[in-house]
Nucleic acid binder design. Structure first.
Lengths: 253, 253
DNA sequence: TCCTTCGCCTGATCCGGGTCAAGGCAAAAC
DNA sequence: GTTTTGCCTTGACCCGGATCAGGCGAAGGA
């Protein structure tokens, strides 16, 4: 689909596929890095954690990672690439639930129903760390740090779920969306101001509950106001403060 | 505020404040009932679980259970009454995040930030079981059933958080909201078709991202279509199938 | 008793964003 | 090369629900 290298997605340091070559160390950007650090590198517990991981992928654009109804056996941390999760209602209309960046985790909402309640699709070439959930639960029972980490992951996702709620203007939603993406890239060690929108305008619109045309118009306006620079899917945030001000009611802080 | 007894809220069996008089048994309707049953009544582990609970309340209408920014120390299971959670943005506009019925749990979204990210207010006379979270985590590490229960609670809430998302008509939202309330009451052992809307029309509107006037109009229309019977805050669902059909895109199943 | 307040309902008007339609562009397929 | 196919953009129009304004009834206070 896209052949040119998206700016910001693949900066030199750190690599989008983080170094985890040796068996006692995880991806530096990974959502579980905290748990690993908490127990200390080299300890036998970390070894156990590492053993329950399996690298899967690469998936290509449009591939399903899992589908609605699949039995829940594992959660997936994105190593590189991007994923969207979505549900399809009985009229066949798609509803995008979220986009997931390297280091972020999908599948947590499947714990309760024990089946995945949504689809997950790769938006570009994407790889994962697959964590067996039964094994991880068992480990969590032995390692408080792992348990706490899982609680925090779940709780964190609860907080972000309510971000897109609320009746807000198209400008507010879009500005908040762009700032949020930037913050998340930055939190994982990438550029927070220059990155690719790997998802289509339609997916953004669907996620923000807008029409694709509205997304297009708002982005065009933001560009003319020099809030952003945008060419195709290559995005640069020129005035983060300005964007944050527009989206302030949807953003933490 | 309300003096008359709301129909369906206080049916004879079970009582809204469930029987937990003896020290080894929990509220029958409680969200933690499953965990208790899993380990079996009378076991020492259940005794531990029981020890970390504290009954708090009754809170009166409008009382805060916790406020945004309060340090997170415990989660709260509603024993009787009703609560709303909400955030207030910097312009002072309130945003209702959810309503919680007897047996349901609030505070899970505070685990990660370690401070409550929202306010919780009693919508009527309300009592709680307060579970110290540090103690509960420690117990979860010793009792897989408790750990699993917490994971499931968190995951379940993740699923419901995405219910109000999506661009849906006022009719769809309202129908789904009423059906959802009914199902939740039923799941806790109350009448699923006859209960009180303890929250104001304004709160419903805020939660559903509608204007209070729209809520009023839709409810009036539903009544004229004989989908519901409504007098003040006393609600009866007359045609659940009809409501489910209207709200089908927002409801599970 | 009157008056205020609050929650709720209803009508009139207006606007943001959806919908429809058309066209441009670049990558991919032939 | 040409054509096809997505994806994106732009313009014109329209509608659902917000906003504004007014009225009603119950509760509470002076």
């Amino acid at each position: 689909m896209r052949t040119s290298q998206p700016a910001g997605r693949l900066p030199d340091p750190p690599s989008p596929i983080s170094d985890d070559g040796d068996t006692t160390r995880f991806c530096r950007t990974c959502a579980f890095a905290g748990a690993c650090i908490a127990v200390g590198y080299g300890k036998p517990e970390l070894e156990s954690l590492h053993c329950l991981v399996e690298h899967v992928g690469a998936y290509r654009t449009g591939d399903h990672v899992f589908r609605t109804g699949d039995p829940f056996r594992a959660i997936y941390a994105v190593r590189g690439g991007m994923v969207k999760t979505c549900v399809v209602d009985k009229e066949g209309r798609e509803q995008v639930l979220g986009f997931y960046l390297p280091g972020e985790v999908i599948g947590l909402n499947a714990i309760y129903p024990e089946h995945f309640p949504c689809d997950a699709l790769a938006l570009e070439k994407t790889e994962f760390c697959r964590f067996s959930f039964p094994a991880m639960s068992a480990l969590a029972a032995r390692m408080p740090a792992v348990q706490q980490h899982l609680f925090r992951l779940l709780s964190k996702e609860l907080g972000t779920a309510s971000l897109l709620a609320g009746d807000h203007s198209a400008d507010e939603r879009m500005a908040a969306f762009l700032c949020d993406l930037g913050r998340r890239y930055e939190a994982r060690g990438f550029s927070g101001t220059h990155f690719a929108l790997s998802m289509s305008r339609g997916d953004i619109a669907n996620y923000l509950r807008l029409a694709a045309e509205t997304v297009s118009r708002v982005l065009t306006r933001f560009r003319s106001q020099e809030l952003i620079a945008l060419e195709g899917r290559d995005l640069e945030l020129l005035d983060v403060k300005g964007l944050e001000k527009i989206g302030q009611n949807l953003l933490p802080d």
